[in-house]
Amino acid sequence: MDIVLQQLVNGLTLGSVYGLIAIGYTMVYGIIGMINFAHGDVYMVSAYLTAISIALLTFFGVESFPFIIFGALVFTIVITGAYGWVIERVAYRPLRNSSRLSVLISAIGMSLILQNYVQLSQGPNQQGVPTLITGAFRFHIGDGYVQITYMKVLILLIALAGMGILTYIIQKTKLGRMCRATQQDRKMASILGIDTDKVISSVFVIGSAMAALAGVLVTLDYGAFDFYIGFIMGIKAFTAAVLGGIGSLPGAMLGGLILGLSESLFAGLVSSDYKDVFSFSLLVLILIIRPSGLLGKPAVEKV
């Protein structure tokens, strides 16, 4: 019993992280129909930026935890957002009217460039940040107990807040309406006076900012990272996006949570060696039953 609860809690936090990164995949796919394979590496860059921001803040004498975490969030989100903007500008916009395959290859190239650039500038070794927040809640259940670290609680709260704010922006603001209009009919959106290039840029910035949020949270919790962490995290988040229905924003969040929960539960109850096999089998199964994902709309080819 206690292990199920423990893994549920772990799964929720892991899932919320997957969900945050999946948002970037799903929004970009929704608006320009491409899989941004460099997105995982944007997440990786944000882990390095977190370490840099913590180092800078401590250097300038900021020692209180809340300020360090807040400062790291702001610094990392802003700069990672800028990375997203530049990537779209450099690697995707020039190919806007080319075939999907060219853009895909450009994305893979961008992914390799980011990995190698970080490897060269930051070194190939694993790096880390000190643990800032220690301590945990402990709930006794029968003979065992469930332990939730303060950091995990913080991850869950901040991730959910991030998703809430994003949902509000997309549903209720002018920028959100412009994003949805561009997603539903780009040509019509431009005829109505929307600068669709700007909207696409802002989608990349938003997606990267969400990945940065995940990057800061995971780095603060886990501590260690290297230039290669973007790959597996990217694949997992992409899986979450497909699971929820690529193109659907609530789908990405739901897909992330389901993936995180199933992975944690399987790891805790059956075998942690095969947790990835399990989550990918789950993906295959769901796609057989619902090819467009849980909340995705069936694809209608436009004539």
Partner: peptide, 28 residues
């Protein structure tokens, strides 16, 4: 000129096939 330039200078079109945004409400 770009489409959004034209649109922001007083030209509006109800296009062929209507092209309303299907997943948006009438108000939106």
């Amino acid at each position: 000129k770009s489409a959004h330039y034209v649109a922001s200078h007083g030209l509006a079109q109800s296009p062929e096939g209507r092209r309303i945004f299907p997943s948006m409400s009438v108000e939106e």
